[in-house]
Each structure stands twice: as structure tokens, then as C-alpha cells.
Design a protein around this nucleic acid. Structure first.
Lengths: 341, 341
DNA sequence: GGAATTCTGTATAACGTTTAAAATGAACCA
DNA sequence: TGGTTCATTTTAAACGTTATACAGAATTCC
């Protein structure tokens, strides 16, 4: 089953069939209709491999992520695919598993499939692998790493503005003693978030108590333990910001375990806004780092670069936004000291 | 950059280069080595599209899932890819978003890319779409739906054995009043799990109190609310089984909120064993439905079918297993009545 | 020594599209 | 009528591999 048989049935040449499939305007309406009917009756599906080979365009965009089981990524992948489909393109997803060697495999796959662009959403990235791709004029886009160059774009996350919004929100509710549970300090993004928190307190004129910053691991168990430590402090915070939502969810468990309530006794704010956060009880107030926005921006950057190959890489900024749910409320002063009542 | 340039540099014909790439034994060690060096220096990556076109084999296997943001799937995808890579094959993942129309798009993509097999891990499936694929002799494998036929395999989940293990575990700990939080009753798999629970109680000779079965929605909020209802019952269960882990995690929050402890006051068992379950506090005892095992079985079924095209579809059974963590413990009799102490 | 048999490597026809370039033919005009 | 346009369609050459048939050289066998 191929384009020739369709051509025979529709009594046209293969070129006309090809044009019809590709929506060329150089085909009369009637001819196109006849071809479409032939395609329909023969249940013909054009061979993508042959199309890519013949045209030189794969209509395929690569998306390199660390690990699909990390809850940050599934929504990113989904959104990226959604935009791609809107533009009639396809997506090739590759996991590095945080392993530099696997990264090599991922890049190799991209090159072999002749992708039209690659979005690199991991932090670990070999310089020579980038060269391998950019020397072949494949548009690239990075998330928060790398600098714009010819054909290379970058998406920067404005952590400061997001964390500022969170601190302002708590401040408006009367909170002055605000704790922070960071991510693992060997992770760049975790360090950046922690720094943003510290700076934000300063900007708001709130006093910073380093004693109220505890390290988690971006997972539930780390959040649970860090919150337990915070609750044991002499001066207990009335509100806590966390470096990501999983940490906040773990922290929430620790608070409940002590017989305390969120937000009556303690306010809690997460970061990322993973899907789960809407379904915790109470719903988690969090700083949304829109995966959808990241995905859209990344795809558009690549797609544009492919259209006007001359275009040099651009830099895009994404501002996280505060999502107010039920885990934050007015400060309850009776609880600022340990063992109240 | 193509195979010809490699051939020129290595001073051999293109066929020899092709044979070297494909590991044919009809090339002397020295010649192969020379070719490999040429590939290396030219940084040549063979064009997958041309390979697929020339050979007729795409080395690509399709995986159709409902929704990558559903926490059941990421690990399934990852495992499927891992096995595929081991066999030198690639994976094309497609999301249906629970939408029958999107399913059509997914199948179309599979057909256009000439995949060597498709694993269908969703329940919604049109008969005519199946025909579209099986009439093209594409091996198929289903998860818990469909019947084995020529080229079509099926993986069945032995829910009963998993739930039996969970009930036996609780029974051994002295629990006799066991509650259940189901999934949404319009979901087939949720109904099957609920039925398995009821049958299991009967088999163990425990009395079934329909009053202790509440409906959730397979999400945290549903689990939270259902558990709140269970805790308000006249006769409160000392242990609760849930239809999936997210439900159990939500339920855990509800228990903490009442100032009760897991497992001291109430034991909790989930289902699925999603990654999160290991990181809740306490770790969630759960019935593991190994996504890895499902993925491996599915891929092998497809791969074998492709090798021996004569093979008719087989049926595979997967037994869930109990994973004991910290959310289950011996019964505490003082809590079987409401408002204890 | 010549024929038969391996063993390597070469030339070349697929594979199923796309797309320039060429061909056709209808419409228009002088 | 013959010549121009113009829109549409056809022809045929890519695209980068694989794989088949075949050639040449080396080896073995009588």
C-alpha cells in the first residue's frame, strides 16, 4: 500500500497525491477530493520515513528530560506535545536518567532521527554534545542553563519574582516569622530558590533567621523531617515556604502528626504547582512554575528558529505566579511560642 | 554527511559500511575497524528514516497510554523504554487523553511510522482501530482488555491474589473490621478491585460490612473525604484498604487531621505502589502492581510476535505482591469504638 | 593445474516519498 | 488561427539507506 496505488485508483500521478496530502494549493478541488476518496477507500497512511527522507524535514522535535518519573516532567512533556501537535509536528522524548552517558545516547537518537530542533530540559549537559548538534544547525533551547547564541535560545526562570509574591502574601496575612525548607543543596535550582528566599526577606524588610532554614531533599520524606525539626525550634515559624510541592506535602503530614492544623496553626506554601497540589487537603497554596508556559515557549523558540534559520537565539523569561489555595491564612499569634496553651 | 562519504574515507563500498553498522559477520575485523574509525572522524550518524525505508523494519514500538500525567504511567513508560533499549529498539509514546478521537490520532501515528508492534495500555479502544492495525499484521498487546487472537496478546492482572495478600496481612495483625475506599465506580478497574476486596473478605471468613465501603475518586481529595466519612462511623474500622495509593495518601492526611496516628490507631494499605508511596511518612504498605513487570511482559510479547510472525497471541498473568512498609501494624482494640478514651 | 568452494567486497536496484522541471491544455487575445 | 499566459498535472531525479546478485581473489580438493 503506497502512494502509487492511490494515484492509480484516483487516476492521477503520484505527485498530485503527494500535493494533496501536503495541502498544496496547486491542486483543483475536484482532483483533491478524488484523491482523498482514494486514500479513504484504500485506508492509506503515508510513510513518515519516506516523507522525511524525500523532503529533508522530519517534522520531529526532540525533548530531552532527566526522568519521566520526576513529577515535574510529565506535564511538561504533555504540554510540549500539545503545542507540537497544533503545529503539525511530532515529539521525540528522551530520558537521560541523570546519567551523562545516557545523555550521549539521547543526543545520538536525535541526530539519527534528524530532528528539526531539540529542547534540553536537564541541567547536566556536555559542551561537545551541544556542538555536535549546533554544528549541524539544529536549533536548541535550554532551560535555565546556557547562553543565547546563533541557533541557541534560553529560557530563564525568574525565581525572585515568584518567591517575592509568596513572601508578600504571607506578610500581608501578618506573618513575620517565616521558615524555609530548601531542596538538596547539591542541586543548582534548589540553591537558586533558597537564595531567592533570603533576598526576598531582605527586600521586604523582614528579619532573616538562618535557624529557620532547614534542608530537605525535594521529596515527601525530606519535607516531613525538615518540618519536624522546624516545629521543635524555640521560636517556631508561623509560616513556612518550601522549595517544591513534594516537600510541602511531606511537611503537611508532619504538621498534622503533631495535632496542628493547616492553615489555622501554620501556613504553608509550596513551589512548582504540580497537579497533586490541587488535591491535597487543604489545597496547597503554591508558586506556579507553569510547565505549560515553559513547554510553549520552548517549542515556539525551536519552531521559529527552524522557519527563519537566520534568527539568532533569544532569551525568554518566565515569571512564576502565586496560586492561592487553602494552606495559607492569617497568622495566629498564640502559636509563635513552642508548646502553646 | 552520509554513508558514501564514510565509504570514501574508509576506502570501501557503501555496502561494507552498512554491513559494519549493522554488525554483519561478512566483514573482516580490519575492514570493520577502518570503517568505524571513518565514522568516528566524520561524526557520522546513520539516517534512521533511510534505514527504516531500506530495510522495511522501523525498530520502533508504539506505546499507547491514557495520560502521562497520571502517576501510574510514567514508570510504565520508563520501564518499557528500558527493555526496548536493551533489545536495540526505540519507543513511540502516544497519549489518548481519555479521548476516543485522540485514540484515532494515536493509531494513525503508529501506522504512519510503520511501528513493529503496539502496546495498548488504555481501556477505551475502538474495534475498527484494532482491525486497522491487526490487518496490517502489526503485533498488539493489551492490558486487561481484549482476547488473545492471532498476533494479539493480552496481559491480565490477578487482582484477587494481591488483595488476598493484603487482607491476609491485616488479618494476621489481628484486624477484623476492615474498611475499603474504592475508586470511582464508573471505572472498570476500580469496580474489579472493589469486587476483589469483597470476595477476599468472604474467602478469609471475615464479615463484610457494606457500611465500611466508601467511594473515592482515585485522587488525594477523594481519599481524604472518604476516610473522614469512615472515621465518623459508629463502628470505626481498625484498618482500611484503598483502591489506589493516591487515595491512601489522601486518607492518611484525614487520619492525621483527627489527631490519630498511622499505624498505631489505624492501619492503611494502598494499591499500585507508585514511587511516592515509599516516601510518605510513614511509608505506605501497599499492593504492588509492578509497572516494570507489565512493561517487560508487554514488550516481550510484541518482540517475540515480530520475530516469529506465525506465533499466535498469548495470555500473560501478572500477580500483584504485597509491599510491607510502616503504615500497617497490630490492631489497637481501644479504638474500635468512636470517641475513645 | 584446473575446478570447485569459500570468503570479501562491489555495483545496483529497491524502499516510498518530495519536488524541480517539463508537459499539457484551457483561456484569452490580436 | 496561432501565439501567449496561466493553472494544473506529469515525469523523473533525488533523498540515504539496505540487500540481492555478482565479481574477484584466495583456498581447497582431486
Amino acid at each position: 500500500m503506497n502512494i502509487k496505488e492511490v494515484a492509480r485508483l484516483a487516476k492521477v500521478s503520484t505527485a498530485t497525491v503527494s500535493r494533496t496530502i501536503n495541502g498544496s494549493d496547486k491542486v483543483t478541488a475536484e482532483t483533491a477530493e478524488r484523491v482523498r476518496r482514494a486514500i479513504e477507500t484504500l485506508k492509506f497512511y503515508p510513510n513518515t520515513n519516506a516523507r522525511a527522507l524525500g523532503s529533508g524535514r522530519s517534522s520531529l522535535y526532540g525533548l530531552i528530560i532527566s526522568d519521566i518519573t520526576n513529577p515535574f516532567f510529565p506535564e511538561l512533556v504533555k504540554s510540549f506535545e500539545d503545542v507540537a501537535v497544533q503545529f503539525g509536528q511530532e515529539v521525540l522524548v528522551a530520558n537521560t536518567n541523570y546519567d551523562p552517558h545516557r545523555m550521549e545516547v539521547c543526543v545520538s537518537r536525535m541526530l539519527q532521527r534528524k530532528v528539526d530542533g531539540v529542547a534540553i530540559m536537564t541541567s547536566e549537559m556536555d559542551e561537545h554534545l551541544i556542538d555536535e548538534m549546533s554544528s549541524r544547525r539544529i536549533p536548541l533551547v535550554f532551560l535555565d542553563t546556557g547562553t543565547p547564541q546563533k541557533g541557541i535560545s534560553n529560557i530563564v526562570i525568574d525565581y525572585a519574582s515568584g518567591i517575592d509574591a509568596a513572601v508578600a502574601h504571607l506578610s500581608a496575612l501578618g506573618h513575620t516569622i517565616i521558615g524555609f525548607i530548601s531542596g538538596p543543596m547539591d542541586l543548582t535550582s534548589a540553591r537558586v530558590r533558597r537564595r531567592a528566599f533570603i533576598n526576598s526577606l531582605k527586600r521586604k524588610g523582614l528579619k532573616l533567621d538562618r535557624n529557620l532554614i532547614e534542608e530537605g531533599n525535594h521529596r515527601m520524606d525530606g519535607g516531613h523531617e525538615a518540618m519536624a525539626r522546624l516545629l521543635d525550634k524555640e521560636v517556631r515559624p508561623t509560616a513556612v515556604l518550601t522549595s517544591n510541592d513534594m516537600t510541602a506535602i511531606g511537611a503537611m503530614g508532619a504538621i498534622f502528626e503533631r495535632g496542628l492544623k493547616v492553615p489555622q496553626d501554620i501556613s504553608l506554601i509550596g513551589f512548582d504547582d504540580i497537579e497533586l497540589s490541587a488535591f491535597t487537603q487543604p489545597g496547597l497554596t503554591t508558586v506556579r512554575l507553569s510547565r505549560q508556559e515553559i513547554a510553549k515557549t520552548a517549542f515556539r523558540a525551536l519552531y521559529n528558529a527552524k522557519q527563519h534559520t537566520s534568527a539568532k537565539g533569544a532569551e525568554f523569561t518566565i515569571k512564576p505566579t502565586l496560586i492561592e489555595r487553602k494552606s495559607t491564612g492569617p497568622v495566629s499569634t498564640k502559636l509563635t511560642a513552642k508548646h502553646p496553651g
